[in-house]
Every structure is written in structure tokens, then in C-alpha cells.
Design a protein around this nucleic acid. Structure first.
Lengths: 341, 341
DNA sequence: ACCCATTGCTAAACTGATTTAGCGCGAGCA
DNA sequence: TGCTCGCGCTAAATCAGTTTAGCAATGGGT
């Protein structure tokens, strides 16, 4: 595009100086002894010609492209991807960088292809993102330059940014204890594979620990724990329905995510029970759906935008190593009340 | 990244040939008179060294970067952005291209910045995407090269891809008529600004026309039309509640989108009415929430993935001008039944 | 008068590819 | 023997920048 852009040579010619002079002035090089007048002339010429440097030409020499690769496993599946990207985009813009994106779809061939494509374009660094917080191993090709893992960790001490799920678990419990819930708190969404296989999920384990620890510190435990195959509304629905049929009704339910909570709302409605008067509900993620439920769902949100930001900050500024955790904060709506006396 | 990549010169040296020869062989140039043996040697050398061309260097000469800019107004706000991007990403990968993404957030300064950044990197073309289907005017800087509008149209005859909302409207009506609904069909989500200002939305007007025309052809009209300020669940909830209070109950409701439909479900549940036995519901978009509702919501889906694909296909292959419409297809779930006799 | 340092600037090399122009050699022909 | 032609290949220019090495002019000191 744009075949007729002014080049540095054009600017130099118009300013009556050499390319060298023009380059130095425009790059604001210190220690150069060009006169104030020369500076003026170069700036004026650049301005008049609407000069913009050709990044490809520059990077050929400097090996800097001001371009970051954002490689993720799956972007489309989850709505959260957008936020991760948005945060990264914001931070990149502030630093005059740009994002090259690719998706591996969990396919090794695609991944290789994507990484090659990025490396061929001499990106300055790579953000390797996972859509579900988990542990993964980064492809060796990436180890040749700066990498930061986003929403993932790895065993090789690379810098990475992950949400503080354990603290989030404690926060959920605290919100319930505050309102007087204590003995009759149920948990929905336990899931062995997610809890035990860090390559699938890191969130489930961390949330669970946070919840259990906080409860233990308050001298109590969960009154009921429901296992779910997936964290989708239908599973929350079934789990809640079962709980209502089989046990004494809990005063509060913690759901492992908002989609489960949606299912819980449906089961509660079916049973003619009101949130939060009969049962309080808290959950995690701050999915848009949390705001749409009636009553609004209180949830501890995943800070995707911040995480995206943080990742590019670490990549560009930092010699950071190891994990950076980003706090998850409670989005208070109306799903938590006090237990009926 | 990767400082020690083999260059073309390395390959040539190892093959005992000139850079020229190596370049021609690797690019599979026709009409060159290099011997079969020379070909062998070059391929072998490239293979052994793991040679990959430096895209920046190449593009400096050829002015092709195999890179497409994807500039959108807002990516994060709506979950649909992910699908648009995903489709574009797929098609780009198939053609060995890569996507540079930027977001303007509707801010003119950001937009200028983003466009400059892309142009500085010599992208081969630009996809200019809007998150809500609408008409817009493309910044003049983009007119210097290939552009295609995605989910948007413009007055200057640029190629663009948009969903076929009018046909979607007809489809919704047909699904209802098929089941025997006729006289008592209500519409929820009319909205003057969306319907009348193409710079805000093209979808509302088109859907409405499709609905009205199809109904007229069947010799009937809507029994009720509810206006909504926004297309969010709460507005659908209020609208449906009002309808239930004030008028004879419709046998079916068409919602302008799935979020409104969610609100409608909530109002129906509150009134103790069942979907689809008491009231059938159809809507548009195929938001993930449609699958989560009980019963599953039948909806005419926005083909975002296809649209994203189509946009890069037009950009790279085509000398297409004017609009390309992509069909919206009905996602059948369980929210449409026959009216009670 | 000579030497040296400083000032203000530039020529040329360099980055890694593509592309144009053309060279040397052997065969065929007169 | 001399000329042309085709074959197989290469030198050098080019793209648009950055960077290194260094040149000419001036001024000051001895």
C-alpha cells in the first residue's frame, strides 16, 4: 500500500543535508554535533513531506520491529480472549508497538507454522497465551527470544502472568461469612481432572484451596460438594437440582464459574426458591452473563484486561522471571444475602 | 529474536552457488536455466541450515509483506469479535498470511495512530471491521491500498461483507408460520435510532423489513411491537412483562437478539408461563447464551467466522467491489412449538 | 608558523533479500 | 577460422533505513 511515500533520502534532499544527518536528527541521537538550524530544516522537511519511516527497512538494520507476537491456543471459543487481547493491545499502543496475532487451535502443525511466521517477521518478543489458566510447555523455537506466558505457567521459570485464583477462593468465602453464612455452604463444580491436572487447569485447584483454607480458618467446612463434568449451565443445573432433592438446603452456594451459577439459578427457579432470600450464590469469572441474571450475580472477576497489559509490560520492560499474579476482584451485585433466621 | 538465522548468502555459499541462483531456486522461478543439480544443492543447503527467509528484507524489495491489517472499532466489548478474527485468521493462514491487529475504540486519534502503524509496516491490505453491522466512512489514509469492510458498508463502493439480516428476518417468521403461529406474533426490540440511523445499525432495519414483508406475504401483521432502548436482557424483560400485563398473550415472540430473548425468558418464567408451550420464542445472533437457556433458544445466527474468512478472501483474491452478503442460518433448538389450540 | 582539538557534517558500508544485465563457454554453422 | 546462439550461472544494483569512520574548516595555543 502507498507506493509514493517520502523516504529518508527525500527528507535529506529537501533539507539540503545528508541521509545520515536526517536519520540522526529524526532519531534524536545524543552527542551528535548537528546545528540547531540543521535540526530545524530536517524537522520541517519531514513535516512537509509527511515522512514516516519504513519499519521494514529500519528493522533490517536494527533488528527491532516494534512488533509483538500474540500466540494463543484458542481465541474464538471463549469470550475472554477478547479481553486478554484488548489489554495487550492497549499496553502495546502506549509503547508504540503493534500485535501480530496467531492461533494454534491446539494443533502442533498450526503452532509450528504460526511460530515460524512470527519469527520470520522478526518479532521483538512473543506472548504465548492460553485460554484456560494452565501449565504448558513452550515450544523450543520460542526460547530463542523474549517470551512471556499469559494465563499460563511453565516449569522452566519463564515469566508468566496468571490470575490469583487462590485469593479469589478466599474472597468468595469471606463474602459469605460476612453475611452470616457458616455451616451450610455448598460448592458446585468440583472436577477431578481440572483440579489434579495442571495442564488442564490451574484455576480449579487454586480456587478450591482458597475456599477450603478460608473455611477451615473460620472453623467450618463445606456442607456439600457437587462434582461436575464440565463447567456449563446444564451441569450446574443438574448439580443444584440433586442437592435440593437429596440434602438439607444450603444457605449459600459457591459456583466454580458463572456458567455453573446460571444453571444453579435455573434449578433454584424451578424449585421456586429465591436468590438471595432462600439461597445466596457467589461465583467466579465475571462473565457478562453475571450482569444479566436476575438478581445480578456477585462474582470474583478474572482480570483479563489487566493480564493482557501486564504481559506486554513484562515482555518489553522487564527482565522479570517467574510468575506474576494479578488480583481478582469481587464484582458485587445482588446474589448474596443473609441466611434466613 | 533468533540472531543466528541462516541467510540466503549462507545457503548460496554452502551450495557453492551465487545468491542469485539460490534465490531463484527457492522461489521456484520459471524460465531460469539452472541445472537440476543446482536445484538439488540449493534445496539441500537450505534444508540443512534450516533456512527461512527474512520477511523484512524481502518485503523491502518486493513491497509485499504477506501481512494483513485487521483494524476494528471495538474488539473487547462483544464476544463476536473473536469469531470475526478467528475466521480471518483461518483464511489468512491458508494463504500464508498473518494478521496485524489494532483497535480504534472509536477514537479518532487512536485510529490515526493505528492506521499509521499498519501502513508503516507495509501491510498488503486492510480489513476495517465494525462490531455492530453499520455504515461508516473509511479514513482516507486507507484508500491508498486494498481495503475491505467487515460487518460494515460504506457509500463509496468499497468491497464489504455483511450478514443477510433481511433474509434472517424472513427466516424467523417462516419458522413461526410453519408451526401454525399467525395472528398473535409479537416483536420485541424495535428501536428508532437503530432502525433509522445506518451509522448505528444496519441490522435492526433489515431484520424488521424481513419480518414485516414475510408477515405481509402471509396476509398478517405483528400483533404487538415493543420498543427497547437497548438490546439487553433487562429491556427484553421489561418489554415482555408489559406485554403480558397489557394485551392478550401472544403465541410467539420474535426478539431482535438473544440477549433480549433472555430477558423475555425471565419475564415468562416470572409469569409462570412455559416456553414453548405457552409462548414460542425466536431470535437472532446465536449468542452462546442461546444454548444455555432452558429450553434452548432457536435463533438465526450471525455467521461471524464465515464473514471474517470472506473478508480476507476478498482482500487477497478479489477485485470484488460492493457488498457481499453472507447468509444467516437458523440454529434450531427447542423454543418454538405450536400454539395451544 | 605550526600543531591540535573541536565543530559540523558526509561518504560508504551494512542489513538480507530480489532482480536486472550480462559474462564465459561450448556447440553449430558457414 | 570466425561468428552466432544458447546454456548455466553471477556481479551488481536496489529497496530504505542505521551506523561507522572520517573529512574540511575553524579557532586557540605555543
Amino acid at each position: 500500500m502507498r507506493h509514493n511515500r517520502a523516504t529518508l533520502a527525500d527528507v535529506a534532499r529537501r533539507a539540503g543535508l545528508s541521509k545520515t544527518a536526517a536519520s540522526m536528527v529524526l532519531n534524536g541521537r545524543e552527542g551528535t554535533r548537528l546545528s540547531a538550524e540543521a535540526h530545524q530544516r530536517v524537522f520541517a522537511a519531514a513535516e512537509e513531506l509527511g515522512y514516516r519511516p519504513n519499519v521494514a527497512a529500519r528493522s533490517l538494520r536494527t533488528r527491532k520491529t516494534a512488533t509483538i507476537a500474540f500466540v494463543s491456543d484458542v481465541v474464538a471459543t471463549t469470550r475472554f480472549a477478547g479481553d486478554l487481547i484488548r489489554g495487550a493491545l492497549d499496553a502495546a499502543r502506549e509503547r508504540d508497538h503493534v500485535l501480530l496475532i496467531a492461533e494454534t487451535q491446539g494443533d502442533a502443525a498450526f503452532e509450528q507454522h504460526a511460530i515460524d511466521a512470527m519469527l520470520d517477521r522478526q518479532v521483538d518478543g512473543v506472548i504465548y497465551a492460553a485460554m484456560a489458566t494452565r501449565r504448558l510447555t513452550v515450544p523450543p523455537a520460542l526460547r530463542t527470544g523474549p517470551v512471556v506466558l499469559l494465563n499460563a505457567t511453565s516449569s522452566d521459570g519463564l515469566p508468566c502472568v496468571v490470575p490469583d485464583n487462590e485469593r479469589a477462593g478466599r474472597t468468595a468465602v469471606a463474602a459469605l461469612l460476612d453475611r452470616g453464612h457458616h455451616d451450610r455452604i455448598a460448592l458446585i463444580g468440583r472436577n477431578r481432572p481440572k483440579e489434579n491436572d495442571p495442564e488442564i487447569s490451574l484455576a480449579a485447584h487454586a480456587r478450591l484451596r482458597g475456599i477450603q483454607d478460608a473455611l477451615a480458618e473460620a472453623g467450618t467446612t463445606l456442607c456439600r460438594e457437587a462434582f461436575c463434568h464440565e463447567w456449563l449451565p446444564e451441569h450446574g443445573f443438574k448439580a443444584m437440582r440433586t442437592i435440593l432433592r437429596r440434602s438439607a438446603r444450603p444457605t449459600a452456594v459457591i459456583c466454580m464459574n458463572d456458567r455453573l451459577a446460571f444453571g444453579v439459578y435455573q434449578a433454584l427457579a424451578e424449585a421456586g426458591l429465591a436468590v438471595p432470600d432462600d439461597v445466596s450464590v457467589v461465583s467466579f469469572d465475571d462473565d457478562p452473563i453475571a450482569a444479566w441474571l436476575r438478581p445480578g450475580l456477585s462474582t470474583i472477576g478474572l482480570p483479563h484486561v489487566q493480564m493482557g497489559r501486564r504481559a506486554v509490560e513484562l515482555l518489553l520492560d522487564g527482565k522479570a522471571t517467574g510468575p506474576t499474579t494479578v488480583p481478582m476482584t469481587m464484582r458485587r451485585r445482588s446474589s448474596i444475602g443473609s441466611p434466613a433466621a
